[in-house]
Amino acid sequence: MKNKNVFNYLKQLHADNAEYKEQMAELKKLPHEYQVVYKEIQNFLWEFTSGDGMDMLQPMYGLLDFFKEGAGNQVPVLDLVGEDVGEFAETMLHEIQAKTRINELKRKMNERVKKEINQNK
């Protein structure tokens, strides 16, 4: 049974890697300023991901679609996201509602507090 789970995991990992490469090839087709903003947002979001970062891939693919549409309509990237790219990225992070590193840190903190309080009762 374990071998089947490992095989399925590796198969999914390969598929995810192939999809990621396809998405990054699409990003390279966008105007330079779109690529710069995308990479900055991606780097920001990955700072807050938990585990292997897979929780951020679908939102990043959604952002890429948004950017492709904007570029196709010749909208400057900062007109799409606003002048404060950091604020846009933070808002996106909150909207994702993915399991993030912050959520994991808060969960662990709450567990430690409860454990410590319960031990001293």
Rank of each mutant, 00 (worst) to 15 (best):
F67P: 02
A89C: 04
Q42P: 04
I41C: 00
I96V: 07
K68L: 07
Y20M: 09
G70P: 03
A89W: 00
E83T: 15
F88M: 06
K29N: 10
L105A: 14
E95Y: 07
I102S: 14
V85A: 07
F48Q: 04
L105G: 09
E19M: 11
Q74P: 00
L78F: 14
Y38K: 07
A98N: 15
N43T: 13
Y38I: 08
M54N: 13
T100W: 02
Q58W: 02
V85P: 09
E47I: 06
I102L: 13
K106F: 14
E69N: 13
V77A: 06
W46N: 15
G62N: 11
E83H: 14
T91S: 14
Q97F: 00
Y38V: 05
G82A: 11
I102W: 13
T49H: 11
A25E: 10
L80R: 03
Y20I: 14
G72V: 10
D65K: 15
A71F: 04
I102D: 14
I96S: 07
G70A: 07
L105H: 10
Y61G: 07
T49V: 15
Q97L: 09
V77M: 05
S50G: 09
V36S: 00
D55M: 03
A71I: 03
N73D: 10
V75L: 05
L45D: 05
P59Y: 00
F66A: 11
Q97H: 06
G62P: 04
A15N: 01
K68C: 06
S50M: 07
F48P: 03
Y34S: 01
H32W: 11
K39F: 06
N17R: 09
M54K: 14
F88G: 07
P76I: 08
H94E: 11
E47D: 13
E87A: 11
Y34E: 05
G51P: 09
D55W: 01
G72N: 05
L80F: 01
K68H: 08
N17S: 12
F44H: 12
G86D: 08
N103Y: 08
K68E: 13
N73W: 07
T49A: 10
Y38M: 04
L30T: 08
L63R: 00
L45V: 08
F88S: 05
G70F: 01
D55H: 01
P59V: 05
K21Y: 02
E95Q: 13
V75T: 09
